[in-house]
């Protein structure tokens, strides 16, 4: 078996929280990511799903070292990047790119499309002189933008077009792994479909490995080979996309899937929904044992005592619940 392109081992990202205006003291720790292990094989697309605040964006940022890891390791191409110093890591950066959620915030408003795309090419010596212009127009065509718009500024484009620019910028560096952090959640439905198709096409065309992060399970299911479900900083389920989507095992995944509104009134009326109590606990003060316990319809006293590990429950399918047999 080939070695995974990206390996996360017990990755932890904790943020200290201070309180007090004058005498600042440590009030607690937000366990944004709390021991996540995940492999992404070359050419594979892994979807990472979870609700807001579950730590999925923090995980993405930790992999590209926008936030420091507080524990565990991140390895890329077999090298442990979480322990590297920044100058050493900079050489690897082009191969590991991130697409941001908000195309309105991820582009420098004072830079034309040309400048935004030419900059990474020049800095990393991927093109120079006249070549830059050709590469920029190639990139724009690749993502479906007319090269004649290269002298325009981000504010002259719609949200979908901006996201295309952001994608082109990430691809300019010819990355092997692209992490897409909710790339379509800020877009309208019809535009969302265009961008998803684009990502799918580019993945085939360039042989990209993709870690695709979203809160919308149907979007993730459409694009991914495997799906990982995250709740309060931990993975609760991991498995082949269709397995997770059609035969979810963890109570949280079940609730998540049953909560997606289906655009089909007939199905909607007959659909059985997993009703959840309350709302997610805070990552600052997670409950003991299984973090999902207070909302889980199947919870029992035992759930408060142990943090359930991911256990195999099928071919390449894992879930973190001690009552997998019973439910």
């Amino acid at each position: 078996m080939t070695r995974p392109l990206l390996e996360l081992r017990a990755l932890r990202v904790h943020f200290p929280v201070y309180s007090g205006l004058i005498r600042r003291r440590l009030a607690g720790t937000v366990r944004a990511v709390d021991g996540v292990s995940l492999d992404v094989a070359p050419g594979e697309t892994v979807g990472l799903v979870g609700e807001s605040g579950c730590g999925k964006s923090t995980l993405a940022r930790a992999v590209v070292r926008l936030v420091p890891c507080t524990g565990g390791t991140v390895s890329f191409e077999g090298r442990e990047i979480s322990a590297m110093r920044e100058p050493a890591f900079r050489a690897l950066r082009p191969r590991l790119q991130l697409i941001f959620q908000d195309p309105y915030a991820s582009l420098n408003p004072r830079m034309t499309v040309f400048d935004a795309l030419a900059e990474p090419l020049r800095v990393h010596g991927l093109a120079d002189g006249r070549d830059v212009r050709r590469r920029v127009s190639d990139l724009m065509e690749l993502v479906g933008l007319a090269p004649r718009f290269m002298r325009k500024y981000p504010h002259e484009f719609s949200g979908g077009q901006r996201q295309r620019i952001a994608i082109a910028r990430a691809l300019a560096l010819e990355p092997r792994l692209v992490i897409a952090d909710e790339p379509v959640s800020a877009l309208d439905v019809s535009v969302q479909a265009q961008i998803l198709n684009l990502i799918a096409r580019l993945r085939e065309q360039m042989g990209l490995t993709l870690l695709f992060i979203a809160h919308d399970l149907s979007v993730v299911h459409y694009l991914s080979h495997r799906i990982a479900v995250m709740y309060l900083g931990r993975l609760v389920e991991l498995g082949p996309a269709s397995e997770v989507f059609y035969r979810p095992r963890h109570p949280y995944t079940r609730a998540l899937i049953s909560a997606i509104p289906v655009p089909d009134p007939v199905k909607e009326k007959t659909r059985q929904r997993v009703a959840l109590h309350d709302e997610p606990a805070s990552a600052l003060n997670p409950p003991s044992g299984c973090a999902f316990r207070p909302r889980c319809p199947w919870a029992e006293p035992r759930c408060a005592e142990i943090v359930p590990p991911l256990e195999s429950c099928g071919e390449g399918h894992q879930a973190a619940c001690i009552r997998l047999e019973d439910i």
């Binding site: 940022r61 590209v64 070292r65 926008l66 900079r90 050489a91 950066r93 082009p94 590991l96 790119q97 991130l98 941001f100 959620q101 908000d102 915030a105 991820s106 582009l107 420098n108 408003p109 004072r110 830079m111 900059e119 990474p120 800095v123 990393h124 952001a166 910028r169 560096l173």
Partner: peptide, 23 residues
């Protein structure tokens, strides 16, 4: 995010300062 993007792209600091932050 567009400043975070400069880090992800591995741009040198002086460039980020002069071309992305100050403008």
């Amino acid at each position: 995010e567009f400043i975070e993007a400069t880090t992800v792209m591995g741009l040198p600091r002086h460039r980020v300062l002069l071309w992305h932050l100050i403008p």
